[in-house]
Simulated scan of single mutants.
Amino acid sequence: MSVTNRTFGQIPALTGLRFFAALMVFFSHYPIPGLNQTLMLLQNSGFSGVTFFFILSGFIITYNYLERFESSPAESTPNYLFARFSRIYPLYAFCILFAWMNSGGAIAIWPYLSATQAWDDNIGLAMGLNSPAWSISVEAFLYIIFPFAIPILKYTGALSSKNKLFIFFTIVIAIQIALALYFSISDKRLLGSIDPSSPHRWLYRDPLNRSLDFLLGIFAAIYYRRFFVESLKTIKKWSCITYISIALILMVMTSTTIYSNAFKWDAAYALPYVTLILSIAISKESKISKFLSTPKIVLLGEASFAFYLIHVMIGGVYLKQATSSLPFTLIHQALFLLIIVSLSIGLHLTIEKPSQKFLRGLTKRKRSPTKYIPLNIETPAQTEQPTQANT
């Protein structure tokens, strides 16, 4: 099947995959004690799920908006930004307000309501109130740069030249490696996360650095939409790449060498996550893709935004028992996880979806007669579900 006559429909497996990325972040905050070093490293490295979300964000937004921003970026930007706002902000603001009121209202709330906290050098502010919310602050910046990214790539010819696209992709990967190498060999590698000059500050939570992940997702989506030629042989190859990508991610997560240097914050995971996302999108009939596409897993993926936002905020419910046996600990944490999953599904169904529907309905009468396919979403913010080509 050629690129020109291939249809681009939904990719529910990517929605399902979001839940497991959120689960990784969960275990990085609530690791099960008493396990061997490999399993402890696997849990502690779960923060890398945030890198997955930023890359997936770039992929899905480009998958849905590529043609629209290629042909008419100025006209498309208002609807696009309002769609992002409608999907992300209501539940985000709800959680921020709850966390602020829980704090007694003594903390300045404006940086959080405006989603600008990630820009602050002070980790107490950047990751304050509800710590996972810093990534939504980064997402807000990524949403803003997207309307500029596609026209620039069009101007450079990267939308019509696979070689140019590959060059841009290689440059971004090289920048990520160079930055990680710099922080790994300099004295800054020893700085703790609270230091404004630390690798945690500049590689993990800095919006500008995270825009590199976002760009990788954009490049992957352009490749998929413009240059990937679908055939049974290539699909089988990409199905194998799915397993290779997962194996590589697990190897990196459990590597003591990676965990002890600045590569862990982003660079070590960027390429494996890109190939995982792309391979899942391509090999829709693989066993992994089919599993991730099952209704229950997709529902968990749809609720992963709420899961991500609340799992730290309600952490007071989970009190670690220092002297408990491993079976007791496993059951205890399983019950806690079940509570968070249940609450996240409830928030998704009662706040996230209805508020999005309401806000999008406000602009329905103002839309042009041209058929508009609504967004179905993103990040740990949420990542919107791919729909038809111009969603």
Score class of each variant (00 low, 15 high):
Leu203Ile: 12
Ser86Asp: 04
Ile109Arg: 05
Trp100Val: 00
Ile244Gly: 07
Ser355Trp: 03
Leu14Gln: 01
Ser293Ile: 02
Met101Ser: 14
Ile11Lys: 15
Met24Asn: 10
Met251Trp: 04
Leu232Ile: 14
Trp238Gln: 13
Phe219Pro: 02
Ser72Asp: 09
Phe27Gln: 06
Tyr89Ala: 08
Gly104Lys: 02
Asp120Trp: 11
Tyr92Thr: 09
Val25Thr: 12
Trp202Gln: 14
Thr329Pro: 05
Phe82Arg: 03
Asp266Lys: 05
Phe183Tyr: 10
Glu352Ile: 08
Ala106His: 13
Val317Gly: 02
Leu35Arg: 06
Asn36Ala: 13
Ile60Trp: 14
Thr234Val: 15
Ala389Gly: 09
Thr329His: 06
Ile175Ala: 06
Thr370Gln: 13
His200Gln: 08
Ala270Gln: 02
Ser304Lys: 05
Phe54Thr: 07
Ile136Trp: 00
Leu179Ala: 13
Tyr92Cys: 08
Thr4Glu: 05
Ser184Ile: 08
Gly46Phe: 03
Leu271Tyr: 02
Pro147Lys: 06
Pro31Arg: 13
Ala22Asn: 08
Thr350Tyr: 07
Asn390Ser: 14
Tyr273Arg: 00
Lys236Val: 11
Glu285Arg: 03
His332Tyr: 06
Gln176Tyr: 00
Gln10Asn: 07
Phe8Leu: 07
Leu41Asn: 06
Ser260Asp: 04
Gly157Leu: 12
Arg225Ile: 11
Ser211Tyr: 04
Trp134Gln: 13
Pro272Asn: 09
Leu56Arg: 09
Pro272Phe: 07
Ala158Glu: 04
Ser103Asp: 07
Glu70Thr: 10
Ser198Trp: 08
Gly157Phe: 11
Ile351Lys: 00
Ser161Asn: 05
Tyr224Ile: 10
Thr379Leu: 09
Ile297Thr: 04
Phe336Cys: 06
Leu14Tyr: 02
Ala180Thr: 03
Ile244Met: 07
Tyr269Gln: 11
Leu23Met: 15
Ala389Gln: 12
Met253His: 00
Val25Pro: 12
Gln37Ile: 02
Ala22Trp: 06
Thr323Glu: 15
Gly16Ile: 15
Leu337Ala: 10
Phe19Met: 10
Pro151Val: 07
Leu159Ala: 14
Leu250Glu: 10
Thr391Ile: 01
Leu299Ile: 11
Leu113Val: 02
Ser193Lys: 12
Ala268Met: 05
Gln382Ile: 13
Ala262Arg: 12
